[in-house]
Design a protein around this nucleic acid. Structure first.
Length: 178
DNA sequence: AACTGTCGCGAAG
DNA sequence: CTTCGCGACAGTT
C-alpha cells in the first residue's frame, strides 16, 4: 500500500519587494509563505520541476492578483478557497472575522475580540500567529489598540510593507479604522 | 502548567 | 506627555 501523495502545485512569485510561495492541491490553497529570500521556501527544490508545468487556474489567478496587489492596486482576495481543516473553531472564527476587514483599513486585536464577544485578546493574536494564508487572510490589518503595530508571523518588515502598499502605513491620522 | 502577534491601569520619569 | 511593570483575560499545546 503506497500512500497516494496529493498532487500539490507551487507558485513562487515576486510581490513588491518580497516573494510569495503559495501551495495548492488544485482545489484549494493549502498555505502561503512570504519572505524576502526566495530560497527560504521549503518547496524551492520543486520549482524547477513545477515551473515547467502549467499552473492550475487557482494559482494562475492568484499569481495575477498578487502582482496587481504588489503594484499598489486594490485586490479582493475574499473568495479564494482555503484549506482550513484541522484548526479549532475559535481559530477559524477569528480568521473569518479578519477576512472581513476591507483593503486599506485596519482594526485592533481588541476590536476583533469584541466582535466575537470575547475578552481574551491574547488568544486573538495566537490565532493570527498561526495564520497559514497571509495576505489572503489579512492579519497584517490587525494592530494594537494603542496604534502600535503588534506582531507578524512573517516578520514585521513585511507587515509594514503590506500596510504601506495599502496606504495605511504612514499610519493613523487620515488612515481609516475599519 | 505554560505559553502567546493584548489591554488597560497605575506609578514613575 | 511617555514609558514601564503587572495582572487579567481566553485558547492552545
Amino acid at each position: 500500500m503506497f500512500a497516494r501523495t496529493k498532487q500539490e502545485s507551487v507558485l513562487i512569485v515576486k510581490v513588491s519587494s518580497f516573494w510569495a510561495e503559495a501551495v495548492s492541491d488544485g482545489r484549494k490553497l493549502l498555505r502561503i509563505c512570504l519572505s524576502y529570500r526566495k530560497d527560504d521556501f521549503q518547496s524551492i527544490y520543486k520549482l524547477n520541476f513545477e515551473e515547467k508545468k502549467r499552473l492550475p487556474p487557482l494559482l494562475q489567478r492568484l499569481k495575477c492578483d498578487l502582482i496587481i496587489y504588489g503594484s499598489g492596486s486594490k485586490v479582493d482576495f475574499s473568495c479564494y478557497p482555503l484549506q482550513t481543516e484541522g484548526y479549532s473553531s475559535f481559530t477559524r472564527r477569528v480568521w473569518a472575522e479578519v477576512r472581513e476587514i476591507p483593503y486599506g483599513r485596519f482594526c485592533s486585536y481588541k476590536w476583533i475580540a469584541q466582535r466575537l464577544n470575547n475578552r481574551g485578546y491574547r488568544a486573538i493574536g495566537k490565532a493570527l500567529s498561526i495564520n497559514p494564508f497571509p495576505i489572503i487572510i489579512p492579519c497584517h490589518r490587525v494592530i494594537r489598540e494603542d496604534g502600535s503595530l503588534g506582531g507578524y508571523s512573517q516578520g514585521m518588515r513585511i507587515k509594514k510593507e503590506l500596510l504601506r502598499i495599502e496606504g495605511v502605513l504612514p499610519l493613523l491620522p487620515q488612515a481609516k479604522m475599519i
